[in-house]
Every structure is written in C-alpha cells, then in structure tokens.
Design a protein around this nucleic acid. Structure first.
Lengths: 197, 197
DNA sequence: CCTACCGATCGGTAGG
DNA sequence: CCTACCGATCGGTAGG
C-alpha cells in the first residue's frame, strides 16, 4: 500500500531516478538490483515498472541529463565575448559546481556510462568527444592570443578535466570545506601551478 | 582439453588474474561473469576454481597488488634526501608510468575497489588514506621550505592525483603519443600552471 | 581439465 | 500498488 511520494515539481519517476543515482553511485549500476532500489523507495520491485521502462532506461536518463547540462553550459559560455582565460575559468567553475551540487548524477555519468547499450553508448561517447574538442580549441585560441603558456592543448584539457573530476573524492571524504574556497584553490592550482617563482 | 598456458615466470593463476583485470576494466567487476572469464581463457568456468578461490579473491589480488606497488614506491622516495619538488616529480612520474604500463590493474584498483568486501575494503581504504596523508605532508614541507606557493595542501594533492588518474582516458583513446613527452607535459602543467606570466 | 548440477538471484510480466 | 511467477544467469561444488 506504500506509495511513492511525488510533488508538483517532482514526479514519481523523478523520485525513482534520484534514488537510482544514489544507489548506482554507492554500489555501481550492475550491483544494484531493482529489488534493492524498490526497497529504498518503499515499494515492491514490480511497482517500479508502472513509472519506468527498464533498469537500463534509468541509466540512460541519468547519463544524458548530465551530458546535456554540460553541453548546454559550454555553448552558453562559447557565445560570450569573454577572454579565453575567463571562458576557462567559467567552465571550470561550472564543473566544480556540478560536482558539488549534483554529485550522484555526475558520478554515475562519469563511472557507469560503460554499461549503456548501443545506440546510447555511441551517442554518449560522441557527445563527450565533441565537448572535449571544443575545449581543446579554447586552449589553442588562448595560446595564439598569448594568454596561455605554450603547452600541449590535449594534455591541458585532460589535466584540467581530470583534476576537477577528482572532487568526487572530496565529496566522499565529507570534509566540510568552504565551497567557494575549494573552487578558488583548485582554479588557482590549475591556472598558476605549484611552484613558487 | 584446453589448458591454461603457463610459463616459468607466469603461473596459471597469473594468467587468470591478468585476463580478469582486462575484463574488469572493460565491463566492470560485477558485469563480468566467471563464464565470460573462462571463455576468454579457453576453459570451462569450473576449471578456474582449481587455480583460484573465488571471484572476489581475484579482485582482492589485483587491488592490493596495485596498492602495495604505490606504497612501496612512496617509501623509497621518502627515504631519499631529494628536495620536495624532486620528490613530487618522482612520485608523479611513477603514477604516470604505472598508468601507462599497468593500465588495467590500476584501473581496476581505482574503479572497482568498492566491490571489495570487509575486511578487505577497510584495509584498502586505510592504506589509501595513509598514502594521501604522506603526500599532504610533502606539500606542507615544500611550502615551509619556500619551494612551493602558499596553496591549500589537500587541494593540491587532490588536484595532482586526479589529473594523473585522468591518463586512463588517454589510454582509452589510444593516441600513440610519445610517453616521455606526455609525462613532461602533464608535469609541466601541474607544476607551473596554464597562465603565461 | 570437464560434465552435470545446485540454490540464489536477476530483470521483467501477467493479472487483478 | 501488490502477489505470483517466468526464464535466464549467476558463483560455486561434487565427482571423476
């Protein structure tokens, strides 16, 4: 008789997806069963199928929601006439805030996308590749404008994206560090390095 | 009648572990069945149990081999009288070379340790925590000796370790970049940053 | 090393 | 929303 609690802004499907992201983060997609998911929500496993199509659909929904958020933000920043240093600062800050405010969904998109099935897998990888290509262009443009040091653009993108992704460990450690301070500290390291001049 | 091929330096167990690391990297631990593993090796699933104890034991072996390699190297570098800049350079280079030369094992240790069961899970996390604490000390000491800028040491360790971990994407993209060049480029970014002075 | 097999659990459906 | 159930697959064992 238990019912999934939904509100005006949060459908029952949303509740299921949110809980799924939590469990997929904690135990992994493959190791999370629909029965466990149902238990955490308070219904029987079969009841979930009134709101969702399949277990795989849950993963697809999470992965593409995250991917679209990043793509949208990239395009918004690209349209501005900010310097490339400023564009990079904006996108790094966005990555950090996504990591801190939508931790579970981002974690699932980062770690469990492999479990997607075609055509979703191909689409996801394609979208990510386009995203990274655009970021490489931003590095190249910044080098040409003499904003950046003359570094390898692919390595730079890789280094920055990976560093920001590492915030998932931070989240796990549950350090109650000031968010703004963390953003500034990481940005500072990535832009200015470790070594004293 | 098929038999696992072993040599003087590579036991049958080693062959199984190597193939397991490959499959765990490609599909994840939970999504890899013992039957798939046996197929890739060329025997029946039940035959594997003549050489190994369980599926979980495979994961434990891989995770702790990697953890021990890193811990050993850390202690060796710690014993030298190198400057902290040089110590950091050494450990970053070691991380990069582990990533490039033992990709699959490192990947499994980085991504699938969650599937370990206690007491292995606790041990693994404890070992990792000690490792990171030592690295934080290296940053603090470098700041005191005026080698490093006055940055947040935890953020610095997180940033560096995460960036290096990102090399797994590089490996996946199969770019045939010069290894030494890649090492230098990433080291350069982490030590000196992006921005031109 | 294989054949034969076990109990447990999986994602999902039928029907109400 | 639940009960009852399906076929498939899982990790692992017995016995040779």
């Amino acid at each position: 008789m238990a019912r999934i609690i939904s509100t005006k802004n949060t459908s029952k499907k949303d509740v299921i997806i949110k809980k799924a992201a939590f469990l997929f983060t904690k135990k992994g997609f493959a190791s999370t069963s629909m029965r466990q998911l149902a238990d955490h929500i308070g219904v029987e496993a079969s009841s979930l199928y009134n709101h969702i199509g399949s277990k795989n659909e849950l993963l697809q929904t999470i992965c593409f929601k995250v991917a679209n958020d990043f793509t949208t933000q990239l395009h918004q920043i690209a349209e501005t006439d900010l310097s490339f240093t400023q564009k990079w600062e904006q996108i790094i800050r966005f990555h950090i805030s996504m990591m801190l405010n939508h931790y579970e969904e981002v974690f699932v998109a980062n770690h469990e996308w492999k479990q997607l099935e075609d055509p979703f897998l191909s689409n996801f990888l394609h979208q990510r590749k386009l995203y990274e290509s655009r970021l490489v262009e931003w590095i190249n443009a910044g080098i040409q404008k003499k904003e950046f040091r003359n570094i390898d653009p692919h390595v730079a993108v890789l280094t920055i994206l990976s560093a920001v992704r590492g915030l998932e460990f931070w989240h796990r450690h549950k350090k109650n560090i000031n968010t703004k301070k963390l953003e500034s500290a990481m940005l500072d390291h990535l832009l200015f390095g470790l070594i004293k001049k």
